[in-house]
Simulated assay, not measured.
Amino acid sequence: MHGANSTSLTPRYFILSGIPGLEAAHIWISLPFCFMYIIAVMGNCGLIYLISHEEALHRPMYYFLALLSLTDVSGCTSFVPNMLCIFWLSLKKIDFNACLVQMFFIHMLTGMESGVLMLMALDRYVAICYPLHYSTILTNTTITKVGLATFSRSVLVMIPFTFLIKRLPYCRGNIILHTYCDHMSVAKLSCGNTKINAIYGLIAAIVIGGFDMFFISMSYTMIIRTVLNLSSVDARHKAFSTCTSHICAIVITYVPAFFNFFTHRFGQHTVPHHIHILIANLYLLLPPTLNPIIYGVKTRQIRKEVIRLFFREKNILSMK
């Protein structure tokens, strides 16, 4: 097999094809992806800087937002630069071990984002249902512990993917029909039994996505029940308004993710392959791009601190 070791059926490298059937349009396709990546990096790094430097934002809600931004910027950086090299420079070759590393980080950070969204739902639940105990329940120690637990869960669940891929024999070539090393896209190149890979992929999706969606749903069920019991219309509106940014983040994260998951397993013959790959890239890049915009527009405290920071910097420059 081309690119394989002489002593085994493990390839030395894979070839990432990009988007099959749209090779002629790679340059044009790369432009919106590059633009979105720039916005994602600037927006999320800006949020992390703002939250870490402005004392008014040193609250649990914003700590979780900073963690979401860190996860988002890490997630899109794990594949977009490599994808742009494929589109612009035709650098399609990726070492076998480098492919495993990329696959691990993409899936681990995707799981981490889902976990952070769940933690943010719990934050809103405590803030609305137990406002008097908010600061005593969500202490810095508690936030650190749940953050580390979410990270550890993602790492432990995703580590087996690398071993499941490494154990397989590869005799169907080394060309991955994708822009990055996705678990099942790599497994399809194997002539071995990939049933375990498919089953474990489903288990991982249930353990992380299913578990998080269950707790998000439970949190918002309790939130809605509490808000509807409020006597004041203004109080209801204020309570709901604190959740709008988070709800938008959930929608733009889970809708493309579930579409990608189900089409990958059940819609391979009905959804064109290039559409599936475009959706797979958007599902990883869209949340990091839109989350800073959504929270910047919808969250009054962040808008206030951005304006204050802008005018403070402007005054400093005018004094020089």
Rank of each mutant, 00 (worst) to 15 (best):
N5L: 02
L22M: 14
A24S: 11
A24P: 00
A25I: 02
W28G: 03
F35Q: 05
C45L: 15
Y49I: 07
H53F: 09
H53R: 14
E54K: 15
E55C: 06
Y62D: 06
T71F: 08
V73M: 09
S78M: 13
V80P: 03
P81M: 01
L84I: 05
L91D: 04
Q102G: 13
L109V: 12
M112W: 08
G115K: 09
L117P: 07
L119I: 02
L119T: 01
D123C: 15
Y125H: 02
Y125Q: 00
A127Y: 03
Y130C: 12
L132K: 12
L132H: 11
Y134N: 01
L138P: 07
T141Q: 15
I143Q: 10
A149N: 03
L164I: 14
P169K: 04
N174W: 00
I176N: 02
H178T: 01
T179F: 01
L189K: 11
A204K: 04
A205M: 13
A205F: 14
I208D: 02
T226L: 01
N229Q: 11
L230P: 02
H237L: 08
K238Y: 05
K238S: 11
A239D: 03
F240N: 00
S241N: 10
S241H: 06
H246C: 04
V255A: 13
V255H: 08
A257D: 06
A257N: 06
F258L: 15
N260C: 14
F261P: 03
H264N: 14
G267H: 13
I277L: 07
L278D: 05
A280M: 03
N281M: 09
Y283P: 00
L284Y: 08
T289G: 09
L290Y: 00
V297L: 08
K298M: 13
V306T: 07
I307V: 15
L309V: 14
L309S: 15
F310H: 14
F310S: 09
R312T: 13
I316A: 14
S318F: 07
